[in-house]
């Protein structure tokens, strides 16, 4: 048994035994999906354009997955540092990579389960999503999205020393982004300058990538831009995370 599987198992048990986190990870985004789905049932964003559900489903999915990856990792890092679990790990011959990779595996697993669950609900007749044949291009987008938001989460988890601080910072990041990136509100309905601004937000690329995958829009060029955008954010926040990581809350 490697240190990686040991930590992945410990993480998995801690995750699945936490009802609150499970709720915010799986049920909470689903509420948005149901509410938006019912409000905009049968409507189209522009005349002859895509049905609303084609925006709502990838929007709620990208936001829900990004939110869970960011919050989950940030909370784990903050808790593990505050409760000296990181110190305990430090004292064993465990490399830091095992700590990060095991947490990454959990984040990916959670993202995948969310994707299956939210898509399945959106496909129900009452919501009426029709997946295009190009949906598998959403998988690499999903993977890169989880990675990018986990990198942001690592930074938040290193900056914040209390659960309140994690929640405050993460909410400040995620809630405005939900609207500005087109996740909760179709980007095409926003003013042009806001559409331009949204390109500095990782959720824009994540959401666009999933939107295109669900609806079979956009070519390989768009796919490349969206994946590339997420990689750039991963690199930036990954670099910041390596600078800000701390094993303990020392003086």
């Amino acid at each position: 048994m490697s240190t990686y599987t040991a930590l992945a198992k410990a993480n998995y048990k801690a995750y699945t035994r936490d009802v609150t986190t499970m709720f915010f990870t799986f049920a909470f985004p689903l509420i948005f999906l149901v509410v938006f789905g019912l409000i905009f049932s049968g409507q189209r964003v522009t005349k002859g354009g895509l049905p609303y559900i084609n925006y709502t489903a990838p929007g709620v999915l990208s936001w829900g997955v990004g939110n869970a990856a960011l919050f989950g990792v940030a909370f784990t890092m903050m808790h593990w540092r505050r409760d000296d679990i990181l110190r305990l790990i430090w004292r064993t011959p465990t490399p830091l990579s095992s700590v990060l990779v095991s947490r990454y595996a959990i984040a990916l697993g959670v993202g995948l389960v969310q994707a299956v669950l939210f898509t399945a609900v959106a496909l129900l007749p009452s919501f009426g999503l029709h997946l295009s044949g190009g949906w598998p291009t959403g998988l690499p987008v999903l993977l890169l999205g989880v990675t990018a938001f986990m990198a942001v989460g690592l930074v938040v988890g290193s900056l914040a020393d209390t659960p309140e601080a994690v929640a405050a910072i993460a909410n400040c990041v995620m809630i405005p982004m939900a609207f500005l990136s087109g996740a909760f509100y179709p980007i095409t309905l926003m003013p042009h300058w806001l559409q331009d601004v949204s390109h500095v937000l990782p959720l824009r690329y994540f959401n666009d990538g999933l939107l295109n995958a669900f609806s079979g829009q956009g070519g390989w060029g768009d796919f490349g831009i969206n994946c590339g955008g997420l990689v750039v954010f991963t690199v930036i926040f990954g670099a910041i995370a390596t600078k800000t990581f701390r094993w303990s809350n020392g003086r």
Partner: peptide, 28 residues
């Protein structure tokens, strides 16, 4: 070397034996 600190650091939401088995695995 083995260190016991005042703040008891245990893996979150695990049982006593699960916690110790995790630590054991970290030591190989």
């Amino acid at each position: 070397i083995g260190v016991q600190t005042q703040a008891s650091a245990f893996f979150t939401r695990l049982t006593a034996v699960e916690h110790l088995r995790t630590v054991a695995e970290l030591y190989g």
